[in-house]
Design a binder for these strands. Structure first.
Lengths: 104, 104
DNA sequence: CAGAATCCGTTATGATACTG
DNA sequence: CAGTATCATAACGGATTCTG
């Protein structure tokens, strides 16, 4: 594994997690919770609708988040993590621990 | 630890690693290598001077990279990782493994 | 050699109003 | 409720030129 190929691998991972709000959203979904669009809006007041839907869609495309549509009126759409999305927890934990170990 | 505080923690970590070139630079420095500014330029031909110095400075501020100035003419400046910077390897590895485990 | 300074195009994010 | 559409701005990245 060359420096650049390894970097490319991590960069692609990071790209999936980049975006001002993705991690905030993810942390609200961890634990297998299912939240409606409006639930997420309430949980994250600072986010705009545009950003919320955009980041959700990107994570859906990346296979991290799943979207569950209940065909009813009024509409009901729930968001949750995929199995793979759930499985990122340990990785984020490792990163957090590294960050927490910062000297100074 | 609330969702938002945990997210804030990881977000700060990610922010330190974000930037088009940081990981590429880091991978060149892993293993305790010391590289001069011009070495890094040669190692990463696609990067501009502006970006190289900017990302190095940010990582220096974050305590990941250290800058070693040799007072001589012509100037000689070397860059390497701090101990803490070195210690991020396992965390990146965990992330890579999660990414590699992606289904499809 | 190791940068600093400037200009400029692209992308990311945000505010607001509207819709099936 | 769960979005779309549009417009404006801010952050980011790159090319070029200059300097101790």
């Amino acid at each position: 594994m060359t420096p650049s190929s390894a970097a490319a691998g991590v960069e692609n991972v990071l790209r999936m997690l980049e975006g001002r709000w993705k991690l905030v959203i993810l942390f609200h979904l961890f634990g297998g919770k299912l939240l409606r669009f409006s639930d997420l809006e309430r949980a994250i007041p600072a986010i705009s609708q545009k950003m919320l839907i955009q980041q959700l869609r990107q994570m859906e495309t990346d296979g991290i988040v799943r979207r569950i549509v209940h065909h009813q009126v009024p509409p009901k759409v729930e968001y949750g993590l995929t199995d793979w999305g759930q499985s990122m927890c340990p990785a984020l934990d490792t990163l957090l621990k590294w960050a927490a170990a910062k000297p100074d």
